[in-house]
Write a protein that binds this DNA or RNA. Structure first.
Lengths: 255, 255
DNA sequence: CCTAGCCGCTGGTCAGACCAGTCACTAGGT
DNA sequence: ACCTAGTGACTGGTCTGACCAGCGGCTAGG
């Protein structure tokens, strides 16, 4: 009949006020909050209270404090870093398997490609094409630059898909997979997938998106992920991922 | 050539140690940490340092402190609450549109249904069936119980899909949509979608999953979301969501 | 045996102090 | 006039010690 009431703590109300100021745009990214000792007077609370509030806001990815700076805590540009940390914690805590992560990426990655195929502009195609060209002309030793251009390529697709939420979560999950599998990938993935295969896949993807073939673009994302990470999974898990790849044997819609 | 080094602060190292203890299973959900004053002696730092660390862990959703309890901070069962908060902040900060949220839910919801159709067990089907029955026999006034059974129904699908990560993110996005649209839904959605339509959809979904028709189950998720939230969107946005619904006019694979 | 009160603990808050580091300003040299 | 080195007023990070309200177990009284 009655709702439970949680005793509010002073620092929580401080957090709420600053949080609201950021979300409402009153405090823009790059702005600076007053110094801790100034906030103490403004909020009429002790310094430790202010500091605990700032620690929370910092862990939420909304603030960044730099000691010594006379400008005070800086409002962050985005809180994706906090999201990444939280999702990392979730994966650790709930023992999310690699199979689940890859499956998730197959879902969201293919959807992003599908959308990109329909919504891409000539600029997006150009960015993808130049990224491929630069990758081709990069010496095999320069792994750093190669990865940079790969990022550019996928960034173009993400931009074209037009859904920021989808791209951010997709990117985080991707990073999580790479982080968790850092060792396994180095010994298993690199030898299998040669540089030429990698480039061929990118060219196919570019062509599919250019021709607005969303289904093909989506399929390429799904199958390539399965190719790359399949060897690291059990037969059972691979079977689960296979379910996401449509079997074209279904009867066609007569319309 | 060299990587930047961030000055580590004492409370961060405290956070890391406790975080690691939780992630590694050394501290299980429901366990209790020593009291603050005991942690002070254990970590050899001041109480404010310990408290700032605890505030961070609490905001990450890993801990829950109850004043007065002689047991100390309790390790939470999961950090989905923190994930929800962080994602909520992201939506606020980046001005993620309702269209993006609904689109995301169309993607992950349809994938969950597809997987559930293939992986469902008889128990899952039974849970779905009883949920439908209870919804049918609920008086129209008891909105509370009706929603409870709806939750049960979708929980069965989530369980059947076999991907915890997918379900959690899906659930959070769903909650965000409901929260953000609380007012708009009450005046727009309820009149349109009658109780009977709602139940019919659930029956169709149950049947599709029973017959392992993944494509149909996925399609139902996509189209029903579009039906419900479409009226709240602009024509342009609706068109973007339409892209996710496959047009069966594509040529069939001759195999 | 049950109950009412006490007392020791908990977390929440505050004040005050010190440290190391940063930045701006200024006085000195060129 | 310019550059440089030094200084001092700040910043955040840490610690100490204190007080409060509230919870819970213990105990003395019914």
């Amino acid at each position: 009949m009655f709702e439970p009431v949680e005793r509010s703590r002073a620092f929580e109300r401080v957090v709420e006020q600053i949080e609201q100021a950021i979300y409402s745009g009153q405090l823009k990214p790059g702005d600076h909050l007053p110094a801790e000792r100034a906030l103490v007077e403004e909020f009429k609370v002790g310094r430790s209270t202010v500091r605990e509030a700032l620690r929370i806001l910092e862990s939420l990815g909304l603030l960044h404090t730099t000691p010594g700076s006379p400008l005070g805590p800086k409002v962050s540009a985005s809180n994706v870093a906090g999201l990444h940390r939280m999702l990392h914690g979730f994966v650790q805590m709930e023992n999310v398997s690699l199979a689940d992560l890859v499956q998730y990426r197959m879902i969201s990655g293919s959807a992003a490609n599908l959308l990109a195929a329909h919504l891409r502009s000539p600029e997006h195609l150009a960015q993808m094409a130049t990224a491929i060209k630069k990758m081709e002309s990069t010496p095999p030793s320069a792994t750093r630059q190669f990865a940079e251009q790969d990022l550019q390529f996928h960034q173009a697709i993400a931009d074209a898909s037009g859904n920021n939420l989808l791209n951010v979560v997709n990117g985080i999950i991707n990073k999580l997979i790479v982080n968790l599998m850092a060792d396994a990938i180095n010994k298993s993935v690199d030898p299998d997938r040669t540089r030429e295969d990698f480039l061929a896949l990118h060219r196919q993807l570019h062509d599919a998106i250019e021709q607005q073939d969303g289904e093909l673009a989506a399929h390429l994302a799904r199958s390539s992920l399965l190719d790359v990470y399949g060897p690291l999974l059990s037969t059972e898990e691979r079977k689960r991922l296979q379910l996401l790849i449509p079997q074209a044997s279904r009867p066609c819609d007569p319309s």
